[in-house]
Every structure is written in C-alpha cells, then in structure tokens.
Nucleic acid binder design. Structure first.
Lengths: 113, 113
DNA sequence: ATTATGATTAACCATGTAGTTAACTATAAA
DNA sequence: TTTATAGTTAACTACATGGTTAATCATAAT
C-alpha cells in the first residue's frame, strides 16, 4: 500500500523548493493572476513559467480556471496548510530553544546587579 | 547579488521533499541518533542514508558530532523554523477559509430553526 | 598485528529537473 | 479570412537526484 499523504508532502515540498515557484505563490497570494501576468516579472520564457505553474498545480498549491484563452490561477491553501501541519510537529523544539535563550538572558541580567 | 535566504529555503524545502529524509527528521526529533541507528529501519544501503543525512546537513536541518567512528546526528530546528516562517505568511489565507466555513455552518444552523 | 565495525567516498546507472526554441491549439480582433 | 494573442506541448540540452556496489578511511576489539 502506498502512503498518499507521503507522496503529497513530497510534491508540496518539492514545489516549494524553487524560488521562482515561491515567488509565483507570493503573487497569487496577493490576488489571482493569469499565466502571462505571472510570467511578466521573470527573465524566463513563458513556456518555463507554464511548467512551473503545472508543478504547483500537481502539488495542489494552485487551481486554474480557463475562460477562452485566459487561464486564471489562484492559490489553493490546502497544500500550504498540510506542509505547515507537518512542520508544526516540531514547533515545540524551537520553542524549547527560545525558552532556554530567554532564561540565559534573564540570568545574565541578574548577574549584572 | 545573490539572495542567500532564497538559496537557503531552496535547500530546506528540497531536503524535506523526500519521505525518507522526513522520517530521519522524525527520528532525530525524538532523540539524537548515530548514522547506523538512523539507517536501521530503512530497506536501503547505509551509503544511501549517509547521503540523505548529508542533504539534511547541507540544509542546516541536522548537526553532526563525531567521536571516534561514531557520528551522532541531532536536529537543528533553525531551518525548520525558517521554513515555517515562510509558510506562516500564508496562514491568514486558510484562516480566512476556515472563517468562511464557520460562517456557512452558522447560517445553515440558523436556517434549521 | 589482524580483523571487525561505523561511516564516507567514488564510480556508475536510470530517472527527473529546469531551462531553451519551435511547433502547435484555441480564441479574439482586424 | 487573416492575423495576433494566450497558452501548452514536444524535442532537446545540461545537470541534479536517489539509488546501487565496491573501495577506502578511521577507530575499536581480538
């Protein structure tokens, strides 16, 4: 049996492991965008951006609606949420670190007096 | 000028885009582990795991200390924290979704009466 | 001194990635 | 009807990835 959640996270993290794609996500987070709008700021062919968008789509990070020749892309936060959920498992570890740092600071201050 | 933060996130997300590596992270989160301990549960050569660990290390997700022939690996949460920080930018979007869902539910209940 | 163990490294293979250009599809405008 | 626009797809290149086995290195045990 295959773990689909596993595959899903693979795809999500892989999609996010590219700064161009993260910038595309940024743009779509602000508001929905057409493919050409998304491509405009990049020094890269439309074909390349088209592929990047498809990677985001496969990872379920982006939904697309087609009207005539215009493809409109919008962020689908479900996958971002899943990625965050995985990372959240480890939140307590860096909280621990912060607590430790805080304590050290506190002790340092006490010594000053 | 190169954006180092960008490169860093590339490496972090790429490191996390593999279920074997995520499982290694899980194991190290529980407690620090030697390389062989980390390799043990996997149906894969030690060499392969050694490489996976190096990917995690390059992404700053793992620190290693060597004592004799034993390499001990522990989680470094700094990078996990960075990844979470990036994702947290979008948190408001799924909160919006949840709010909308909540409202819909509320309205549905009102109609019942 | 020899052998066994923990781990890395090198050489290799198959597959995947990120980009290119060129060809194509579909729709809108002249 | 022709042409321009929005976008995808195909074929290609160069390089990275994830795995293998075999060789190597360093340390510990006999």
């Amino acid at each position: 049996m295959v773990n689909h959640n596993k595959d899903h996270l693979d795809g999500i993290f892989h999609a996010l492991a590219d700064s161009t794609r993260r910038e595309l996500v940024d743009m779509m987070a602000e508001k929905e965008r057409t493919v050409s709008e998304l491509a405009e700021p990049f020094d890269m062919s439309l074909a390349a951006i088209s592929k990047h968008i498809k990677v985001l789509e496969r990872a379920n990070l982006v939904d697309r609606s087609v009207k005539g020749r215009i493809h409109t892309c919008r962020l689908n936060t479900d996958s971002l949420f899943k990625a965050t959920e995985w990372l959240r498992l480890y939140e307590k570890y860096w909280n621990k670190r912060f607590d430790r740092l805080e304590n050290e600071l506190l002790n340092a201050k006490k010594k000053e007096h």
